[in-house]
């Protein structure tokens, strides 16, 4: 087996604020504007991709984040092996893309997922995100795509003061440094 090397391999805490990269998990981008798509996914993963903007749906194994009216990001809530990831991807690809019900694209290494916990996480994000987190932080499961320090991010509110942040791998080290720097000045 090949060595697996993520970008950050780190976790940090500042007071009650903790930051950590979560790996290995599966991430898959779904796109479709087909009517049967939702039921197909429901059958395959026992989870329905949300149609309401800025929301997500979750079960024990997966979260599906709304990205746009025809685009979703699925990620596994638990760490899973490369083989399991492969099986899931193939299963989805064969049952969606191969029968022309939309696209299934593995983006596991495109995104780096960072978990942020602590009562000051929104103070931290507000240092460089123009997004108004008022409703986002009150509603568990909220999803938003916005900018953080001029970098594209996807944010997923998992519980009170606990969220997952997705950033493109190539930007992850840069944003990680920024987050750590900002966390020192809360």
């Amino acid at each position: 087996m090949l060595n697996f090397e993520t970008t950050l391999q780190d976790s940090k805490s500042y007071g009650d604020l903790t930051l950590s990269e979560v790996e290995p998990i599966l991430k898959i981008n779904l796109r479709s504007n087909k009517r049967e798509f939702s039921t197909k996914i429901g059958k395959l993963l026992s989870i329905i991709p949300p149609i309401e903007a800025n929301t997500s749906s979750s079960n024990e194994d997966y979260s599906v984040l709304w990205l746009s009216p025809d685009e979703w990001l699925i990620y596994s809530n638990n760490k899973i092996s490369y083989e399991q990831q492969n099986l899931l991807e193939e299963n989805l690809f064969n049952n969606i893309s191969n029968i022309n019900q939309g696209s299934v694209t593995n983006v596991t290494d495109h995104w780096v997922m960072i978990n942020l916990k602590g009562y000051k996480i929104y103070d931290l994000l507000s240092k460089s995100s123009p997004y108004d987190f008022k409703n986002f932080k009150m509603k568990k499961g909220s999803v938003t795509q916005t900018l953080l320090n001029h970098t594209d991010v996807i944010l997923h509110n998992i519980y009170d003061n606990n969220l997952n942040l997705f950033v493109r791998r190539s930007f992850s080290e840069d944003l990680w440094l920024w987050i750590n720097d900002s966390a020192r000045f809360l």
């Binding site: 903007a53 009216p69 123009p130 997004y131 108004d132 916005t146 900018l147």
Partner: peptide, 11 residues
């Protein structure tokens, strides 16, 4: 029309 009100910097 899809995501709601956002800051111009996102566009």
């Amino acid at each position: 029309p899809y995501c709601g009100e956002r800051d111009q910097t996102e566009f």
